[in-house]
Design a binder for these strands. Sequence first.
RNA 1: GCCCCCAUAGUCUAGCGGCCUAGGACGUCACCCUUUCAAGGUGAAGAUCGCGGGUUCGAAUCCCGCUGGGGGUACCA
Length: 492
Amino acid sequence: MRVRFAPSPTGFLHIGGVRTALFNWLFARHYGGQFILRLEDTDEKRFVQDAADDIMASMRWVGMNWDEGPDVGGPHAPYVQSERKALGIYQGPADALVASGHAYKCFVTPEGEEAMRAAWAAKGERPERFRFRGPERDWTPAQTAEAEANGRPFTIRLKVPLDGATSFSDLVRGGDQITIANADLYDLVLLKTSGMPTYHLAHLVDDHLMGVTHVIRGEEWVPSAPYHIMLYQAFGWHMPTFAHVPNILRQDGKGKLSKRKDDVSTNRFWERGYLSQAMFNYLALQGWSYDDKTEIMSRDEIVARFTIDRVQASPARWNPDKLKDMNGIYIRSLPTAEVAKLLMPYMVKAGMVADPPRAEDLSYLTQLTPLVHERLEELQQAAEMLAFFFADLPAYEPKLLIQKQMDAARTADVLRAAHAALNSIEVWATDTLEAQLRDLVGRMAVKPGQIFGSIRVAVSGRTVAPPLFETLAALGRERSMARIAAAAIALE
RNA sequence: GCCCCCAUAGUCUAGCGGCCUAGGACGUCACCCUUUCAAGGUGAAGAUCGCGGGUUCGAAUCCCGCUGGGGGUACCA
């Protein structure tokens, strides 16, 4: 089994593209076949520098590797179509098709085609029914030779039959046949005026040359599949098996994901602190499922379980909440020390830790990580959650200190009492802090939440924060005492 | 417009003729735990299986029509 993912380097790879790549990769790994990466840069106008590197980095981040590809080489190198074009790989097949009568040289220019459309409409035909058919279909070899001798530029187009229909079967649709009438097709360009092949010719020649057995691609390719079928038949080549996998639709369901409209570039997710395994797991479940219950699966488990017959034919919907939930599950499954290391870059980026971090920065962060570990859904959230450990408290509203059924004077009393009580602690640690403060609760005749809430705001500046005793312990005696004292004063 | 594909709760899905009084997950809500927030636990609401016809003893599951959604309609991929 040999499959490939063949992106076009016209920009970053969004998660929908990664998902399609992933299905190919899973298929190859499940059956012990090969996964090929090929760059389809036949669009000379939309080429984007660095896009190829970004695409490969995104794929590697999610956890895919390839057996053959632009950077790793392979028996069918090169794996970049512009380089293959320079080698003349596509010219021969195109010429062969012309020679066998399956294709023809077409001298109609873009302006000429516009004129043909206008003429079609003028005849009273519905404009939307126009299907391009070159007049050269019926030319004699002499006519073509003459035009060519005159130096007129031409494309090579597929000579699509005027009647009949073309069918093919699709694995995702249970092997059902999809049939399209040839009259609804047009004479597809195979070789552009520039001599560059179009996707249709290039991918097919390469798939054949590279021994691709299964074409797993997005469902947007279904309408052009009949052309590909015709091409295989015209060449007399063995036809691969097709599997058109569903697209991922935008969150609102209005269309498929788009690079321009949606914030779905793959590298944005590692920037925000998504774990590679979480993304892998989530993406695998976009259009594929194992059974009626299992969702959290390791890469190996997914590889072992992935089959095309369990791929859905209907499109999935992009659901960031679900991804986030899954990311939280994976973060919680990691050892705290591991999470601390993962968190460091985010702390540095937020300017809370020196760049590069010192050894004591990591040990302090390791001490703080348990306070936020199970609360994280994205690693980047840690910087915000832990900010008050790394800087003086920003100004906050003193009103926040006052808990339910309390007033300013009473709250100030409580804070002063807490300050005094903590002052007497010999060993500043979570358990001693808790014992001392719980004792205070009894003595002051207030509810735990009333004291703890006030102290929480006093030391963190916020009402939602990590557990109090652990926070005080990690913050240290001096800073804790200073913040509690300052809070009491702020209430006067 | 035309062509193609698809159709189970707000979302992702299980289901491939009787096991379904339709299962799981996200999200939502409630309760428990609890110093806040999470996590965890328990529970609830939420689907006339898009609608209408068939086939069958029996249909979410098969067929047809309709509707809705998506995709395609380039010398882009």
